[in-house]
């Protein structure tokens, strides 16, 4: 059974914002929206999904240093891909956010490296089809993602910042150290602590 992603921090924010606007209260449930698109090409569901995710994909890319124009294009293409591939989304494998983040990553590579006809996004797709075979796969992707999300909120601001730099901006440890003006050893230990904290939260499930 896949729990609806109700009442994540973002869900709460949406509830607050729309209540303030005095219109209606919605629990944002991306899995249900994606299912509605898959089932019947539901354009209202698509609009809701777009309103939530497109500005976040754009924000994530710009946070990583992409120019606004590229970030906008990747965000548009990402949501179009969600529309086209809605029926392929498997909530047992990953949360909607993780699925959409990987689509955005692949499209950023395709679009940024268009002139050289990069094939790297195909490599990610081939790996994505390789199913994990161990019993650990019984830990559903949605459950894993919820754990990771919870663990992320427990990181110290310092740890969160190095994770963000390493993941969003793709900085090497040395780049992160230069950027934050802290020693390389500190970057490595913060990241190691952050990752072991995340893994610790996942170990309980095995």
């Amino acid at each position: 059974m896949v729990p609806a992603l109700a009442l994540t921090v973002d869900g709460m924010r949406e509830v607050g914002a729309s209540a303030q606007g005095g219109r209606f209260i919605v629990l944002f449930d991306p899995n249900r929206l994606i299912a509605a698109i898959a089932r019947s090409g539901d354009r209202a569901a698509f609009a809701a999904l777009f309103d939530h995710f497109a500005p976040r994909v754009k924000g994530l890319l710009m946070r990583g240093g992409a120019p606004a124009e590229l970030a906008e294009e990747v965000a548009q293409e990402t949501l179009l891909t969600v529309w086209r591939k809605a029926a392929l989304f498997d909530p047992a494998k990953a949360s909607a956010s993780t699925w959409i983040a990987t689509i955005a990553r692949n499209l950023r590579i395709d679009i940024a490296r268009r002139e050289i006809r990069s094939r790297l996004s195909q490599v990610y797709e081939i790996l994505d089809e390789e199913a994990p075979e161990q019993p650990d796969a019984m830990l559903s992707g949605a459950e894993r993602d919820a754990r990771v999300r919870a663990a992320m909120t427990q990181l110290s601001p310092d740890q969160y910042r190095v994770v963000e730099l390493a993941f969003i901006e793709g900085f090497s440890h040395q780049d992160v150290a230069d950027r934050l003006a802290i020693p390389l050893g500190t970057v490595k230990s913060r990241l190691r602590l952050a990752l072991s904290h995340l893994r610790g939260r996942l170990e309980d499930l095995r």
Binding site: A94, S97, V148, M152
Partner: peptide
């Protein structure tokens, strides 16, 4: 790799949204 991708999903949820120049257009 799946775990690290899940971290990116969590970062996507937490990032400051930036308004789109154009709206949804399936």
């Amino acid at each position: 790799l799946r775990e690290l991708e899940a971290v990116q999903g969590a970062l996507l949820d937490a990032v400051e949204p930036i308004p789109m120049a154009s709206g949804p257009n399936p």
